[in-house]
Computed example of a mutant assay.
Amino acid sequence: MQNAKSKTRNKPSEDVLARRKVLKELFPVTGSVRAAQIVANLEIGASTWWLYVKDGRVKPPIKFGARVSVWDAEYIRGLAETGIPTKPKAAA
């Protein structure tokens, strides 16, 4: 029988926390931003951000290639101020 320990999540390392802080402080007012900058600014995980994109809760990215996705910095600042919208209802 296993102990009834609660599962704990790994905490980010000091390097990761320092990088997030720098990205948040340097978040541009205008222009394009990538997912790493967005998750640092909104203080959410990268997988959560991509789930919001997949679910249609945020605008899809502008693709600059197979591996480069960007969003408008003004749009992301708006999300930070107003919050992430709820998931759209499925059509019946």
Rank of each mutant, 00 (worst) to 15 (best):
M1Y: 03
M1H: 13
N3W: 05
N3P: 12
N3T: 12
S6K: 13
K7Q: 09
K7T: 03
R9V: 08
N10A: 15
K11C: 06
P12N: 11
V16E: 15
V16K: 13
A18H: 08
R19C: 05
R19Y: 04
R20D: 01
V22S: 08
V22N: 05
K24L: 06
K24A: 15
L26W: 13
L26E: 08
V29L: 09
S32G: 15
V33F: 06
V33I: 07
A35D: 02
A36W: 13
A36G: 11
Q37T: 03
Q37E: 14
I38Q: 00
A40T: 00
N41Q: 07
E43N: 11
I44T: 15
A46D: 11
S47N: 08
W50T: 04
W50I: 01
L51H: 03
K54D: 02
D55Y: 05
G56M: 00
R57A: 00
K59Y: 06
P60S: 15
P60E: 12
P61Q: 12
P61W: 00
I62Q: 14
K63R: 13
G65Y: 04
A66M: 10
V68Y: 05
S69I: 06
V70Y: 02
W71G: 00
D72V: 10
A73T: 10
E74G: 07
E74L: 11
E74C: 09
Y75H: 08
Y75Q: 10
I76L: 01
R77S: 07
G78F: 00
A80M: 08
E81G: 03
T82A: 07
T82V: 15
G83C: 05
G83S: 06
P85F: 01
K87F: 13
K87E: 11
P88C: 03
P88T: 05
A90T: 14
A91C: 13
